[in-house]
Simulated scan of single mutants.
Amino acid sequence: MSENSQKNPDEIVKEQARVGFEIYELENWKLFLSALIAGLEIGFSLVLMGYLHTIFKEIYPDDILGLIVSFGYPIGFIFVIIGRSELFTEQTALAMIPVLNRSKGFISLLILWGLVLLGNLVGGLIFSYFFAWFGPAKGFVPVETLVELGEKFINEPIDIVMGSAILAGWMMGLLGWLITSVQESISRIILILFITIIIGMAGLHHCIVGSVEVLTAMWVSDSITVVDYWHFLWPSVLGNLIGGAIFVSVLKFGLTTNQISSTRKNINW
């Protein structure tokens, strides 16, 4: 197959299955470290969004400003996905394939999800603490911008947060599927841009990026508390998990069980 050729559905499914199985082969400390790195790298989305918000907030009204800021949202995802670090909202989809195929147990899945989520959140926590100091100290992202970007995630009802997070998780599952369908990095970057810009424009709740935003705002504002962060975090994590899992079970595994089974037999460990 040439580099620019598009994979057919069977090849996409087999590639998804191969990646899903290989995730379980990583040692726990390597999995956690990769997830920690992803949590750090995803923070660069906030850096660019904060900068765009700062330089354009006096020029454009809020609706246009929100659109401009959303173009900074994909940069962290590009770093993570192209760099192959482990991101929780990708593993909600990929890691389920071996479990649905009964090649791995549910406990193994929970351990994997837990390690990746913990690594992402710890990485995001470290980045947020650093950026809450560095951004205002450097002068290119003021405290007011950090607070405004974080507050938008903490003042909505739980059912709205949950629905928003389910859509974000679904779209991240879709992103994983589409990325597997192409070979070259440029096409993958374009796909990441389109999908994540939509998540950013719609203000959907992504538990890792949103965690960095809320935590950064919490470090610089007394009005945002750990309770506010928790009220954002748990429905976001659960919603992202549901969205990614449904995408796999309905559109990937349910229609392609035979392809995945044959892939498991052909993998050389």
Results as ranks from 00 to 15, higher is better:
S103H: 15
K104L: 13
K104A: 11
G105S: 14
I107S: 14
L109N: 09
L110V: 12
L112E: 02
L112F: 05
G114W: 00
G114V: 11
V116P: 08
L117D: 03
G119Q: 04
G119Y: 07
N120W: 01
V122L: 14
G124Y: 02
L125H: 04
I126R: 02
F127N: 12
Y129P: 06
F130I: 15
A132Q: 07
A132W: 04
F134Y: 15
G135A: 15
K138E: 13
F140N: 09
P142E: 08
P142I: 03
V143H: 02
V143P: 06
V143K: 15
T145M: 14
T145H: 13
V147S: 09
V147Y: 10
E148T: 14
L149R: 02
G150H: 05
E151P: 05
K152A: 13
K152R: 15
F153P: 04
I154R: 00
N155T: 12
P157N: 08
I158N: 03
D159P: 01
D159R: 12
I160V: 15
V161K: 15
V161W: 05
M162E: 09
M162G: 11
S164D: 09
A165G: 09
I166M: 12
A168I: 06
W170V: 09
W170M: 04
M172L: 12
L175P: 01
I179M: 06
T180S: 09
Q183P: 09
Q183D: 08
E184R: 10
E184T: 08
S185F: 05
I189Y: 03
I189C: 07
I190K: 08
I190A: 02
L191W: 04
I199P: 02
G200L: 00
M201E: 10
M201T: 12
M201W: 08
A202M: 13
G203D: 06
G203E: 03
G203W: 07
G203V: 11
H205N: 12
C207H: 00
C207A: 07
V209I: 09
S211T: 10
V212E: 02
E213P: 03
E213T: 07
E213R: 02
E213M: 14
V214A: 07
V214I: 06
V214F: 02
